[in-house]
Design a protein around this nucleic acid. Structure first.
Lengths: 201, 201
DNA sequence: CTCGTAAAAGGGAACGATCGTTTTATTGGC
DNA sequence: GCCAATAAAACGATCGTTCCCTTTTACGAG
């Protein structure tokens, strides 16, 4: 017989996760102490440990949430193609990521997750699946643009998609760590590098 | 009046740094304890602290060494251009990085450094300078290939170079964390995406 | 060449601090 | 008056680092 409503529990959980996000972004996963986190969440140890059994579980929850966000972004952008060139799709993807980086620090968290995946095999596996999912979305796009002449056909669609995919972490890294002005021109360049074929312009 | 030779001290320092590299790659910077490191180096605490005043100093030394390695690689590849297409230069760069990733774990260490830069502003600044240096090398290459028609001229050379630069972290991330087969085709695709202009083939 | 010596290098126990977590005590709604 | 929810103190473990003692080293004197 719960004493509080489900929505209250959900709100508490969100309150804790939001505080954890801020702490982790400020100090990194392992330099954030649980004491820091309690203070940030304005809760006691007992309260937090009622919702999460360990620090690792919180790290995992936040990492997975961030990976879901990134996948959702790419699916949304890749689905809405309607005759745009490959460069236009990629440029929009980068722009959306930049916005989400400013609003929710999606980029900074992603960089932290990469580092954590280096010493956490299951997290690395989840990251592998995330990137595999993004690549799958890109492959179908690439294939369409190979057929209409917008992309070379002497290599596989998978190879080109992997290259497009490789642009994302570099962009995310720079948005997370440096002045955004450094990569401000990249979407524009991406559009120029992979325009619509001459016949369709 | 030193009591041991300089080369002995250099050897000890290298012995410690090599052990630290292995530890950091295995457990990450902050989950590696100094005790782990003493055991890996087969030295006592007193011995290690004679060569490094703190753990952070060791992290910094290893991070800077790795950044120097990456810059050296790009300078070497970018200098040896001799009429190759932009795609060929980038493909060779990726291939060299893959080899160095297997031999010396350059890629894994780079991913760790990115994460550390998130909570260390001076390290982030050094990383910014590293990427700025790589971009500077790419800009001159891009400019040449814009002139011979191999790359579009409706965007700046800096913008295109930034895009090329963005491919590197994504490639490094995947080489460090996943099966290398995942990105095996990328160099080939890069060659196809940015070939020499038709007139020069 | 041999030995004595000063000083640096190395070993390892021990330090206080802080870690993540658990336990205990108290509160407050039903 | 019960019981979930929270707060706060306390836990043992382990952290990075320091201290002190022993060993090893280079080098000058005989």
């Amino acid at each position: 017989m719960p004493k509080v409503t489900q929505q209250h529990m959900d709100a508490r959980r969100k309150q804790i996760l939001d505080a954890a996000r801020r702490c982790f972004l400020r100090d990194g996963f392992h330099s954030t102490s649980m004491q820091d986190l309690f203070a940030e969440a304005q809760l006691s140890a007992g309260a937090v440990y009622r919702y999460f059994t360990s620090k690792d579980e919180m790290i995992l929850a936040i990492a997975e949430e961030n990976m879901r966000d990134v996948l959702d972004i790419t699916v949304a952008v890749a689905t809405n193609r309607q005759g745009r060139s490959m460069g236009e799709v990629m440029a929009e993807l980068l722009d959306v990521i930049r916005v989400k980086a400013v609003e929710e620090d999606v980029a900074g968290l992603a960089v932290l997750v990469w580092g954590e995946a280096m010493r956490n095999r299951s997290l690395a596996h989840e990251l592998d699946q995330l990137m595999g999912g993004i690549r799958a979305n890109l492959v179908t796009l690439v294939r369409e643009h190979q057929e209409d002449g917008g992309l070379p056909t002497n290599v596989t669609a998978e190879a080109i998609a992997s290259t497009m995919l490789s642009v994302l972490p570099g962009y995310i890294l720079q948005v997370a760590l440096f002045d955004p002005a450094v990569v401000a021109e990249v979407p524009e360049a991406v559009r120029a590098l992979w325009p619509a074929p001459a016949g369709e312009r």
